[in-house]
Design a binder for these strands. Structure first.
Lengths: 329, 329
DNA sequence: TCCAAATATGTAACCGTTTACACATTTAAA
DNA sequence: TTTAAATGTGTAAACGGTTACATATTTGGA
């Protein structure tokens, strides 16, 4: 490993001068600067971030905690975060919590121990994992919080829109799928849909699900049609579940959207590739990631942040699992 | 921040003793150990990994470099890596390269500067990004390499199987989609399929594609049916492309699998939720991630590794975009 | 010409650990 | 009882950077 001392020796100056050249701080004579840079190139020196981090008590690392990167909603968030962080030269220490409090604590610990300068967390753990006594900024992503800066989509509004759209398009016996209880965004969208449905004149029933995993999605779908065979509209808790419902409905020989309308939530990339392509409520995941990153960087730089709670708009994506708007209302 | 010195003071011993307690090295009297542990609990001390890393010149960090986490094949790999690394207490420094040599170099640099003890890379960059002069172990994932330890699926065999299966099931005019030229696994599967097809008696044509992105997949699909409208079998370069082909075929009113058979590659989680569910060549992504992690940890620990090149089996997943095996051959 | 400010550079302390080494003290074999 | 080995603990030097401070030297206005 080539150190700053090697560069100092090679260029015939002190380590302080080398450091000054590298960090562009203090006064350095142009000739000296050139000599040092030459030595740097020569020796292919690149400063040890660990040593830097130790002295300065801050790194160029950001902690990113997601529930599960395997859920197709999150890679987009992650890319948004990464692409934005990249610009500021920040790198990601990354972990999946599986919504498990212990793992969450573990990662938080790791982040701190490694001098990260900020954390973006998309976990929904109810238990008070202590973000409180962290001395670095935290931004919650895909999760509302009154206590902390956060970036999230308007889930309630999304649920409401989904319900209104499916009603407007003529579904009369709707099944509303309620997502996992511990996942706040799932509850928000559920509440929004529930309210809208309650105010409408259609029949509906609620079916609870307890996970967003691929392996389980098929199960909820089968259960849905077994329990409510005459359903003619499904408001799914997310696009994965919607995909499973679509799959099962087609398997049962239903015509989509004639016999059954389906609206998902998230608008994951593959939703547009389904057949029929999935109508859904879009969360701008990539942009949310970017917003969270931007916000966090501002907080790190102690810039004055006007808006600590960024609510992203949610839009209805009208594809082919929903019908034309019913003119008769 | 509470340091080892605070603990030393609190427990009335020297920092060396505290360190010995924490690392369970050297001799420590049981009473002393208890005093120290009490102080640790008391002060909620947890050692600064940065300082540790600086002195020991090694961290508990692993660099993970993927092409693009947004491609649904990679989250699985990543989870496999993470879950296995977790066991050894390793954490991930994570980046997406977009198969871009500069980004790759940047991340490699970051990894080194942060004292990672090993790297797992799934990039396919042709240009000689210098993994050579790294002094830490590197495992290539989803990428064959004679020079470096690697974990990969048998792409060629996968391509061969796909071709054989689609022929066996009666497709006569096959379109073979060739994946991006710079992605080796895509070429391997292509070569395998090409060979098998060449040895068969069916007609086939090759169509080249240049990316695996969602946004482009639909384009290839449309192009495919515009150019080769009488195709009755498609060997897709991966499941995303296969999904797009399926989508487009259904949109054009084709019956699947009667008019057209499709075989994908990867077996990403959503493939089983398509309708009809996608027949595909499965790569055990999660297991590959785990294998790569296991291998890397062994290399880090300088254990004797018998097999540096781990080829994972590839299997045909017979779902509903392929027909029953044609009895007439 | 003088002198304060600006420029240029080096020395050494510091960041929070680990560990080599020195120095007790205790244990137990002879 | 002696003493070598085993046990227990502390001091200080690393690790590779940054920066406060000291010390020139140069610049340029009065």
């Amino acid at each position: 490993m080539v150190t700053i001392r090697d560069v100092a020796k090679e260029s015939g100056v002190s380590v302080a001068t080398v450091s000054r050249v590298l960090n562009q701080t203090g006064y350095v004579h142009e000739d000296t600067r050139k000599k040092v840079m030459a030595a740097v190139d020569n020796l292919k020196y690149s400063p040890n971030e660990v040593a830097r981090s130790l002295y300065k008590k801050k790194s160029k690392l950001i902690g990113l905690l997601l529930p599960d990167i395997t859920n197709p909603f999150f890679p987009q968030l992650a890319r948004g975060v990464e692409d934005e962080m990249q610009k500021g030269g920040y790198r990601l220490l990354f972990g999946n919590s599986d919504e498990n409090a212990e793992k969450e604590m573990d990662y938080l610990n790791t982040f701190i121990q490694n001098n990260v300068v900020g954390i973006i967390s998309a976990t929904n753990n109810k238990t008070k994992t202590n973000y409180k006594d962290l001395s670095i900024p935290v931004v919650f992503l895909d999760r509302t919080s009154s206590d902390y800066p956060s970036v999230y989509a308007d889930g309630k509004e999304g649920g409401r829109i989904a319900a209104e759209e499916i009603v407007k398009r003529g579904s009369k016996r709707i099944t509303l799928l309620k997502g996992p209880a511990h996942i706040q965004p799932a509850q928000d969208r559920f509440q929004g849909a529930l309210e809208a449905l309650s105010q409408s004149t259609v029949d509906f029933h609620v079916m609870s699900t307890t996970s967003f995993a691929f392996e389980d999605a098929e199960k909820w779908a089968k259960e849905l049609f077994a329990t409510y065979p005459d359903t003619d509209g499904v408001l799914a808790s997310n696009d994965i579940v919607a995909t499973a419902v679509l799959h099962e409905a087609l398997r049962l020989g239903k015509s989509i959207p004639e016999d059954l309308q389906i609206i998902g939530f998230d608008d994951i990339p593959q939703s547009s590739l389904l057949f029929p392509s999935l109508s859904t409520i879009r969360q701008p995941a990539y942009e949310m990631g970017k917003e969270a990153a931007t916000l966090l960087v501002k907080l790190i730089n102690k810039e004055n942040v006007q808006q600590q709670h960024i609510q992203m708009p949610v839009t209805f994506i009208d594809r082919n699992t929903t019908r034309e708007v019913d003119a008769h209302g």
